[in-house]
Amino acid sequence: MPSETTSMALREVTAEPEFSLWQRIIGLTRRSPTAAVGLGIILFFGMLALMAQYLMPHEPELVYAERVLHPPSSEHLFGTDGNGMDIFSRVIYGARFGFGIAIPAVVLALVIGIPVGLWTGYRGGMVDEALMRFFDGLRVFPSIILALAVVAATGQSLINVVIVLGVLDSPVFARVVRSEVLALRSSVFVESAIAAGNPTWRILFIHLLPNAIQGAMAQTAVRAAWAVRISATLAFLGIGIQAPTPEWGAMIRQGAEFMISGQWWVALFPGVALILLVLGLNMFGDGMQEILNPRSRAEK
């Protein structure tokens, strides 16, 4: 079922073949400059992540023992950290952790959330009611604290971080899909699909999913931004990802103590990278929501 979900999602997004990719990008730029800038930032970091080994001037975990805490220079563009590692290379490499955690976490959230939303929205009844109450109940826990506590309680591996973020994020998608399904349930095409004797799974995934998925898709970028932020926060607190790993949150953690002694570069650059990627994802997500939900903004 998971693979089906994702392939349906792709089909939805790549529909309407009369426009080339290039035309679509130009259209997006004019339609929502915010989304376009966001997409640009995401692609930039995506490129850093993919081509890290060609772009890094040094190995990310190579120690230059005689160059501990060197300020930025032509040799070390962003300086070196407390272990004598090259911060520039580490910041580039860190993009891999950003995507490496956010993408699987969001995919997991979609894989859990979409079927749950489809099923509860279509069936309704007690299970639906109970589940929605449960999701409401989750809101009394601040999301950061909940994520921290669960990761700490269930074991501090990278995989675990991904799973916890994905699970905690799935209610968002379940809710969006559910409300769309509720609106669609009594529509003619669903009724006729039922009358034609389609099995429930076909109605859910073939008939309802393509029409109910738009709202969930519009949320993905914003949720990815959340995942990047929370995973970096975990690393900053030393939970999940540990110190010499070139992850941005972990690097900020290492730089924290130098902040009040003046070695600003250790924490500054990974922080800037983190903000940019999260900002890019948020801008793209915000722009997409604006486009997909025309009520949110007046047309010009």
Binding site: T34, A225, R229, A232, T233, F236, G249, I252, G255, A256, M259, A267, L268, G271, L274, I275, V278, L279, N282, M283, D286
Partner: peptide
């Protein structure tokens, strides 16, 4: 507002 959504709390404190 988007910026405020994106900035890590702890990093802002450090800066």
């Amino acid at each position: 507002s988007l910026f405020g959504f994106s900035i890590p709390t702890y990093w802002l404190g450090l800066m």
